[in-house]
């Protein structure tokens, strides 16, 4: 009994530093955020008025930008998660059969954007997306096509940002899928070949189901990342043209740090937290129920 107590105390002592950091920088700010959301809380000044749920009511009923940002966040999330997952998987599967040398070269090239600074990448892509003078417009002009002003066109602005983010992250997703592929025993494929299964059937019935844990990780973390997209949007379009690329986190930033409305920013942050929580929970539920293969 005494030994067990000593062991428990030791265990708690070992996790104490991590627990303190977790409480101080994650748990406490979460509850503080919830608390602030119940106040009219300007960033400047000390006048803080308790307003109860008024900030929530105001956001849902009087803030037209909120609904637009919500729609845009889902648009970005759906486009990004779908494309980054598909492209990462596709590249990983294609690379899998390559020789080790080519695999390493291609992996390195594709992984480079994932470790590059997002801000620098965004600035470079602004130049690439520039109408008339940009690389993409130039390449299109060689085909006789006049490209749009990618970042200033309501239709193209969001897909342009999604495309850049997919380009940046697909190397990372590829590495995750390659790790998943390495865990699939070769004997499964040999058996399937003996049974006469073609490449597509092998992929569909062996590779894809066995990559389920990797897929869940990619989709869940991708969704969280997508819902928190900020830097590329702020740098490339600042939410424009009009509201075409205005996402929830940009709205939170504007409310809190440009307009000094910390109460409303905290309210939006709580809503964002609930959204991410619900979407991730749904994904996990479908994963466990076998809906996601």
């Amino acid at each position: 009994m005494k030994t067990r107590t000593i062991e428990s105390v030791s265990a708690y002592m070992f996790i104490m530093p991590a627990l303190i950091v977790l409480c101080l920088f994650i748990i406490y700010p979460m509850f503080l955020n919830l608390y602030i959301s119940l106040f009219k809380w300007p960033l400047l000044g000390s006048t803080r008025i308790f307003v109860g749920l008024k900030n929530y009511i105001r956001i849902f009923s009087e803030d037209p930008v909120f609904w637009v940002t919500l729609k845009n966040t889902f648009y970005f999330g759906a486009g990004y998660v779908f494309l980054v997952t598909i492209s990462g998987l596709l590249i990983a599967v294609l690379l899998w059969d390559m020789s080790r040398f080519y695999q390493t070269v291609v992996k390195t090239i594709l992984f480079l954007p994932a470790v590059s600074m997002l801000v620098c990448i965004s600035l470079i892509w602004i130049w690439m997306y520039m109408p008339q003078l940009g690389l993409i417009s130039y390449l299109l002009s060689l085909l006789g096509i006049r490209g749009p002003a990618w970042l200033r066109d309501t239709t193209w602005a969001m897909p342009s940002i999604i495309f850049m983010m997919v380009w940046k992250d697909m190397g990372y997703v590829m590495v995750l899928y390659l790790a998943g592929l390495s865990g699939i025993p070769e004997s499964y494929y040999d058996a399937a070949k003996i049974d006469g299964a073609g490449a597509w059937n092998r992929f569909w019935h062996i590779t894809l189901p066995l990559l389920k844990p990797a897929s869940l990780f990619v989709v869940a973390t991708g969704t969280i990342k997508a819902f928190q997209v900020f830097a590329p949007v702020q740098l490339m379009t600042n939410g424009g043209p009009g509201d075409a690329t205005r996402v929830l986190l940009l709205h939170i930033y504007h409310k809190g740090f440009l307009f000094s409305r910390m109460g409303e920013a905290a309210t939006l942050s709580t809503i964002l937290f609930i959204l991410i929580f619900v979407v991730t929970a749904i994904q996990l539920k479908y994963y466990h129920s076998g809906f996601i293969t």
Partner: peptide, 20 residues
């Protein structure tokens, strides 16, 4: 002003830039 500038700008964009 910071909020007003942003608000008006969003709508000016939707006239001059996107013609919505």
């Amino acid at each position: 002003w910071a909020e007003a500038r942003e608000t008006v700008g969003r709508y000016l964009d939707r006239v001059i830039i996107t013609d919505e």
